[in-house]
């Protein structure tokens, strides 16, 4: 069963008075438990596509249906609340809250979901242990390496028990070892807990691990291959 469907998705925006067609008629669907990489060169439209699927950006035309809901119709706090409950995000620049410890960063999302304190603490600890940071829970992001920060970001994305995780160039700032560690963690979570991951990337190491590769260029889907 499809958990995400995009129908004739278009995105046009103006940049210095010039109209840019970032996405041109994309039709895609994703099923629960996929481990998908969206690949393409810089400026091909992968981040714009991911932003629209994540409800961060509105399509100029077309529909995005997630869990049966056309998210283009959601506005303001309803859309924010939808993101909070259904989607996990992992960003290229980690983007943890610098004043909170690793554990507090993971707890933060559950705090927004108003989960009970006991549950928050337990889940944050379990998730950090799962990403191999059981001994770094009380460290602030500035005391963690890039790879460790990104693992906290993955734990944070999982904390809200989302339907799927969108990861925008998650390995772009990581060295080889950190990349390998992170990919192993995400692959394990995908296989063992059936968590859906959708990456935008041009990192071959990620592409090699993906079981579905969507190639886009100039805002159009060039190929969609399953391994």
């Amino acid at each position: 069963m499809n958990i995400i469907e995009t129908k004739n998705l278009h995105k046009t925006y103006k940049e210095s008075e010039i109209e840019v067609h970032a996405v041109r008629g994309v039709d895609l669907s994703f099923e629960q438990g996929e481990f998908t990489a969206i690949v393409g060169p810089s400026g091909s439209g992968k981040t714009t596509l991911l932003n629209m699927i994540g409800g961060l950006d509105k399509p100029t035309e077309g529909e995005i249906i997630i869990d049966g809901i056309n998210i283009s119709t959601l506005k303001g706090s309803k859309l924010i609340d939808f993101r909070l409950r259904k989607i996990g995000f992992v960003f290229q620049a980690y983007n943890l809250i610098p004043v909170l410890t690793a554990k507090e960063n993971v707890e933060f999302i559950m705090n927004l979901q108003k989960r009970p304190k006991k549950e928050r603490i337990k889940r944050a600890e379990d998730l950090l242990k799962a990403v191999g940071l059981g001994d770094r829970m009380n460290a602030r992001p500035s005391k963690l390496s890039g790879g460790q920060q990104q693992r906290v970001a993955v734990a944070r994305a999982l904390a809200s028990k989302p339907m799927f995780i969108l990861a925008d160039e998650p390995t772009a700032n990581l060295d080889s070892e950190s990349t390998r560690n992170l990919l192993e963690i995400m692959e394990t979570l995908n296989k063992e807990e059936n968590i859906t991951f959708i990456f935008s990337t041009h990192d071959t190491r990620v592409v090699n691990k993906a079981r579905r590769i969507i190639t886009i260029d100039d805002g159009k889907v060039l190929s969609d291959e399953k391994k």
């Binding site: 706090s77 924010i80 993101r83 909070l84 995000f89 809250i97 927004l112 979901q113 994305a157």
Partner: peptide, 9 residues
């Protein structure tokens, strides 16, 4: 980013 991950404005 905070708004992106679900923090209400």
């Amino acid at each position: 980013l905070l708004v992106s991950v679900g923090m209400k404005k």
